[in-house]
């Protein structure tokens, strides 16, 4: 099973911009969900929806309130890094393997990135309010989770089975 990495510099720059903002939000615990919606270019329908639920673990919230930079340095009861990496690897492996059950994407597609943010979040100009981009009659598959000291991430993929 191959994992493909984009080499398109435009896509890289695009994702980098998103990730920069996500980083700020994640550190301050402002977002609860990250959605990657794969949309058909022809029909505009959402055909696949990857949802990553972000749970900010209790200890972090207070830390984030007092100051996000300090919260990063709390050595107490920390999870070993190898374990975290293992969990992340497991998810990536699972996502890669999901091509076996996900329907084949017909035609040309694009993707959108959504976040479920707190109401009082500060959003840069590029981020605008949107609908949830849900899929009607979607099949949902819960994938693995992973957690760090600060966050717990649940993964869920939703896809439409089409006519079948």
């Amino acid at each position: 099973m191959n994992m493909l990495v984009t080499i398109d510099s435009e896509v890289k720059a695009y994702i980098k911009k998103i990730m920069g903002q996500l980083h700020k939000w994640l550190v301050s615990g402002k977002i609860s969900k990250l959605i990657v919606a794969i949309t058909s270019k022809d029909t505009g329908e959402v055909v696949e929806r990857w949802q990553f639920d972000v749970q900010v673990l209790s200890g972090t919230v207070s830390a984030a309130e007092s100051g996000s930079s300090e919260s990063a340095k709390e050595p107490d009861h920390s999870k070993p890094q190898e374990e975290i990496q293992k969990e992340v690897q497991a998810i990536i492996r699972q996502i890669t393997a999901s091509v076996t059950f996900l329907p084949v994407l017909e035609g040309r597609c694009t993707f959108n990135v959504l976040v479920y943010a707190d109401g009082d979040v500060q959003a840069p100009v590029e981020w605008v309010d949107s609908d949830a981009k849900t899929i009607k009659n979607a099949e949902q598959v819960q994938l693995r989770s992973f957690s760090t000291d600060k966050h717990k991430i649940d993964t869920l993929v939703a896809y439409s089975l089409g006519d079948a």
């Binding site: 896509v11 959108n112 959504l114 479920y116 981020w127 309010d129």
Partner: peptide
């Protein structure tokens, strides 16, 4: 509707692939 949350979308469209993609 869930309170206290907003759904934000990264507005700029994802870049198009310059080459035709044939899976």
């Amino acid at each position: 509707i869930a309170l206290n949350t907003r759904i934000l979308e990264f507005q700029p469209a994802a870049p198009q692939s310059s080459k035709p993609v044939d899976l």
